[in-house]
Simulated assay, not measured.
Amino acid sequence: MSDHLSGTRALADPAIDLTDLYAFPSPSQAGLLVLVMNVFPNARPGSLFSDAASYRIRVRSVAVPAGDFGSLFDVGTDEYAFTFSFSAPTGADAKGNLTQQGTCALPNGESASLQLNDERGGHGQGVRWYAGLRLDPFFMDVLKEVETRAQRRLAFQPKGTNFLEGNDVLTIVIEVDVAKVLGPDAGTVFAVAAESVTAGPYPVRLERLGRPEVKNILLSDNGVDTANKVVDLRDLYNEEDPFRLGPSYLDAYRARLNANLAFFDGLDGKLDWPTQSDGTHPLTELLLADFLVVDVAKPYAEDSYFEIERALLEGRTHETCGGRSLNDDVIDTLYTLIVNAGRGPRVSDGVDGTVPASWEFPYLAPPNPNPPEHEAAIPTVAASQ
Rank of each mutant, 00 (worst) to 15 (best):
S50V: 03
L32A: 03
L98Y: 09
S87E: 10
L48Y: 08
D13C: 00
V59N: 12
T103K: 05
F82V: 04
C104P: 02
A10E: 02
T90H: 05
G67K: 09
S61C: 10
T99P: 05
D51W: 11
F73Y: 15
S87P: 12
T99G: 06
Y22K: 01
A52V: 08
Y22S: 01
A81K: 06
P41M: 06
A10N: 01
P89N: 13
V36S: 08
F49T: 09
Q100C: 06
D17A: 02
A43L: 10
F49Y: 10
T19A: 00
P89H: 11
R58T: 14
V59W: 11
P89W: 08
L11H: 00
D93C: 08
A105V: 03
Q100H: 06
V36K: 03
F24Q: 02
L48I: 10
A15P: 01
F40Y: 15
G91W: 05
Y55F: 07
P65E: 04
M37P: 01
A52E: 14
F69S: 15
V75W: 13
A30R: 12
V34L: 08
A12W: 01
G76E: 14
A88K: 08
I16G: 00
T103N: 06
L35K: 04
A94F: 13
A23L: 03
G91L: 08
S61Q: 15
F84I: 04
A94Y: 10
D51M: 02
N38A: 14
F69Y: 13
P65I: 02
A94L: 14
V39S: 06
I57E: 05
G76T: 10
D78G: 11
L33P: 05
D20E: 06
A88D: 09
V64L: 13
D93H: 13
S61N: 15
S28W: 04
S85P: 00
V62H: 08
D20R: 02
L35G: 04
